[in-house]
Design a protein around this nucleic acid. Sequence first.
DNA 1: CCAAGAGCGTAACATTTGTGACAGTGACAC
DNA 2: GTGTCACTGTCACAAATGTTACGCTCTTGG
Lengths: 209, 209
Amino acid sequence: MGDTVDILLKNTGLEPKLVEEIMSIGRLKKVKSGHVLVSPDSPGNEIPIVMSGLLKVLRQDPNGQEVFLYYLEGGETCAMSITCCIEGRKALFKVVAEEDSTLWMIPMSFMDSWVTKYQTFRRFVFGSYQTRFDELLNAIDSVVFHNMDERLYRYLLDTKQATGSFEIRKTHEQIANALNTSRVVISRLLKQLEKEEKIEQHRNMIEIL
Amino acid sequence: MGDTVDILLKNTGLEPKLVEEIMSIGRLKKVKSGHVLVSPDSPGNEIPIVMSGLLKVLRQDPNGQEVFLYYLEGGETCAMSITCCIEGRKALFKVVAEEDSTLWMIPMSFMDSWVTKYQTFRRFVFGSYQTRFDELLNAIDSVVFHNMDERLYRYLLDTKQATGSFEIRKTHEQIANALNTSRVVISRLLKQLEKEEKIEQHRNMIEIL
DNA sequence: CCAAGAGCGTAACATTTGTGACAGTGACAC
DNA sequence: GTGTCACTGTCACAAATGTTACGCTCTTGG
């Protein structure tokens, strides 16, 4: 539990008094890789702060297709959940654990009072919004201004960055889903990236060079 | 000036006392159609609330290409400007007057105190965030899950909705820019929409049926 | 060892989108 | 009226992406 306090203090910029309050009110949640945290169906009235592990945020369309939007790493929170909760609207996105992760869940009901009481909390919340807007704009950028080969490479680099590993353990099929295209296309483009010596392929694993 | 008060009271859900304060502090700004309000270069430290007219928000890439994201109508504010200002980061987007518009500009410096003091202001700000996230997600949706013909039709419907007119006065070229494609492609698809009897084309004008 | 299935490579072809080129037509200035 | 220019229509072709199909190679469970 001391770990959690440390992470909050170090990565969120929240003042000690508030961290104490957060610790006394929230609850710890552990999720296994692949677990769905937020989905358009499940409303959810708690806000998650990522302590360890990695979450991914996806956009899902009614027919079940999806696109990867961005990763949420340690110390970050899901800004879109916040607004969703406040407005009581249903989420238009999905949050899934990419790795086994631990979260600190804060009930929505405290949001308003913390926003009024703590300057650092306002900073934290508005900072999250800014970061998420940036990520969404980047996602749009990717799709609108770049071809699939570049989108793919970006995705691999993002994943490397988020996981902190040069080895990406994903199948072509999984990557295809994340980019909303087909497995064949990904295989084709990965082969090309291999020729350009940007990656190396192994079974169930891609190595970023 | 009485108009401005009315609009703020009716469309933003802000309490009378705050509206009064906003009126005493902000300033009126009129912009002509085509005028650029926010761009990645110009930082800007005021937040605009749209009183009348119509603004559009675009994403711009370094090479000068751009994509339309969404419209801002009366009573709405530019959520992304807010976070940008607070964080002092440079905008990754561009706001342009689509029609002659009048805005009420609020200096950033009052944001923090209003957020702490007024519940209705918090509602307003968080509500804006929610709406913008939704719009951005829709934009992503459009691009990722739909072909150009559907994107085009959506864009026309959005424009009809935002301007409140069935007649859209835009050239094929302008539409092509908004969707980041070429004029030829738009002409082709408009012809198709005409065949499907969804629109009628006139010179410099498209009529939505 | 063998069977079954998941993951990958590759080819052939369809569809969508991008690009260059050129012609017709209306608006406007002269 | 005439020339110019912006706007649109249309063709031909290129490039990117989607789709179907099939074969190969691992891994796993029996």
